[in-house]
Write a protein that binds this DNA or RNA. Structure first.
Lengths: 146, 146
DNA sequence: TAAATTTAGTCAGATACTCTGACCGCTTCA
DNA sequence: TGAAGCGGTCAGAGTATCTGACTAAATTTA
């Protein structure tokens, strides 16, 4: 009988495994970042990202994103800077302590991806990424949905 | 430049897309189930499942699982029954209203999976499921980790 | 170009979710 | 049979999330 497991569950298991590994490593390294904060932080681009964009990508409301950015700001990981192109907007940017956390996270992500590739084999690992990447075309949020 | 997106993010986007579709459909059909409740509910087996097992699979503590089961129970979706094989344990079982919700969820899961398969092509879709299924061997929780 | 609409973000308040620690009763095993 | 382990609950605290209402800036429209 063919495995009857819902694809959602499969995605959940893999996602949580990755998240747990990264969060554990970050905590290990002495950064006090919660899961929800991390989901926001991780989406801040190199030149700063607007709050609403962070909210959209992390799939939470602007209010929630704002709440989490407040905490990241108080803890010294990010700052809010005016957006030169739009006076209503502000850019959330990573600062010193935030920059320090990035290599830790990047290293463990690379490590986990390597373990997965080792387990699945390169072919299947790249098939996984390929499928997920193409899936974004239909699953990534319609920018207007919120 | 090859896409530089973290596999975790890819998994997250797909997972949330599926979850949102299912939750929306369930709400549409008049069931007041929250996301957290759904993550527990979905893992209850046909003959009932123990609380600790639900907690483990949903990756929350027993207390959290108990809290959510309380709500599902009060709302008439599940019941707690004694486990005949172990007097300490109790089986969480789906009852009437819970049974009514299942076809709704199953239908939308099938629908979404069909859409994904249509977008990716059968080959890539099955490669996706194949990779994720194999990944469980290393990502599924070590039963002792909690 | 003034008015109407949309967009970015915040404030306030209410819920919902999750955790840690402590505990009780049943089971297992030396 | 006594000690350790397991399944579950209680209590309490903190975290995350939402809806609704609002301000101000930008954009569209008449």
């Amino acid at each position: 009988m063919p495995e009857e497991v819902n694809t959602g569950v499969l995605l959940f298991v893999a996602y949580r495994a990755m998240e747990k590994r990264v969060l554990d490593a970050i905590a290990e390294a002495g950064f006090d970042i919660t899961p929800a904060q991390a989901r926001i932080f991780q989406r801040i681009g190199p030149h700063g990202t607007r709050l609403s964009e962070l909210a959209e990508q992390a799939q939470v409301t602007k209010q929630t994103a704002g709440f989490l950015v407040d905490q990241l700001e108080r803890a010294g990981y990010v700052e809010r800077a005016p957006d030169p192109t739009d006076a209503r907007a502000r850019l959330v940017r990573i600062v010193d302590r935030g920059h320090a956390a990035i290599p830790v996270a990047a290293a463990v992500v690379a490590q986990v991806e390597a373990e997965w590739a080792a387990h699945l084999g390169k072919r299947r690992m790249s098939a996984l990424r390929d499928a997920l990447t193409h899936l974004r075309e239909i699953t990534d949020w319609p920018p207007a949905a919120r």
